[in-house]
């Protein structure tokens, strides 16, 4: 979410962002998405103080309790309170994927704009290299890296950020190509501005729209990827609660205690859907045609 709100701060009185907000408010699905998204963010931020039970406390006597007034979402295979665990289960995922998205956007967009701006042979060769990187099955590659380096938050942020940045390069380069032949870029060149200034001051503000929408979509994808890793046991280290891990732990008992899988899965999908809804509404609000956006 910070990726979306940050530019508003840099243009405090810009009517463009005000206009975008006005447009966005008209979209019902967008507002629902935004509300759910904010709820998730709040839960991740202050969930540990709201949780009614200790989320690591195991109790063999109350394994697989059905949802009740005491345990709203029931309990899991080790008798832990599922509501508390679901409440906090997104914290790790959201933090790591947000950082990962930020990294992916920064390096992906800079590389994309620069390649689009430079053009020529360098662009040609590096894009083929990017294509080659995109052909790597990233999940397997991630598993390999984690197996080699070890399981830590930093490793996950760096690897996820790197791999998702590659896809961003393509999108941002495509968006940049539209602006490179424009006269204001030529004007900056004849003025003698450095390449860095042209990329950051002239081109970046113009591809920012595409970039923000792309960031939201990448974030949703990365959340799924992170949960997949957790599901496979490579994400969060137990006993820290995490949705992917919770689904993995309880999936064997799905016929006896479906709630133990259902609630974390619901939490994960509602977060991803809310991101998608918000991104869609935002794209429409700033007049970005998703159909035309290069993906």
């Amino acid at each position: 979410m910070t990726a979306i709100t940050a530019p508003v701060a840099t243009h405090p009185n810009s009517p463009r962002w005000q206009q975008a907000w006005q447009n966005m408010r008209r979209s019902t699905s967008g507002m629902i998405g935004l509300a759910v998204l904010l709820l998730h963010l709040v839960a991740a931020a202050i969930g540990q103080w709201l949780a009614p039970h200790d989320w690591t406390l195991q109790n063999g006597y109350i394994m697989f309790q059905t949802p009740s007034t005491e345990y709203w979402f029931g309990t899991d295979n080790l008798g832990r309170d599922l509501f508390s665990r679901t409440l906090i289960g997104g914290k790790e995922a959201i933090t790591i994927t947000l950082l990962g998205t930020l990294l992916a956007m920064v390096w992906g967009s800079l590389a994309g704009i620069t390649l689009g701006f430079i053009g020529g042979k360098t662009d040609e060769w590096l894009m083929r290299f990017v294509d080659a990187l995109l052909a790597i099955p990233w999940l397997l590659f991630l598993l390999l890296i984690i197996a080699l380096v070890g399981q830590s938050g930093l490793t996950l942020v760096l690897t996820l950020g790197f791999f998702y940045g590659i896809a961003v390069i393509r999108v941002v380069r495509g968006a940049t190509l539209e602006y490179v032949p424009k006269d204001f870029v030529l004007a900056a060149k004849t003025r003698g501005e450095s390449k860095f200034t042209i990329v950051t001051k002239e081109l970046l503000p113009n591809v920012l729209d595409a970039l923000l929408v792309e960031a939201a979509m990448r974030w949703a994808w990365m959340l799924l990827a992170f949960s997949s890793l957790s599901f496979l046991g490579f994400g969060v280290v137990p006993p820290t609660p995490d949705w992917g891990l919770m689904i993995a732990d309880n999936r064997g008992m799905i016929s006896i205690a479906p709630w133990a899988v259902l609630f974390p899965a619901l939490a994960l999908s509602s977060l991803i859907i809310s991101i998608n809804l918000t991104a869609d509404a935002f794209a429409k609000a700033i007049g970005l045609d998703r159909a035309k956006a290069p993906v």
Partner: peptide
């Protein structure tokens, strides 16, 4: 210095007049 044919294209649509002159 150079002045271009079409000011629609030669001024960055995402910059204010101040930012344009600042550069």
């Amino acid at each position: 210095q150079m002045i271009f044919q079409n000011p629609d294209a030669s001024l960055n649509p995402r910059h204010t007049v101040l930012e344009i002159l600042q550069q």
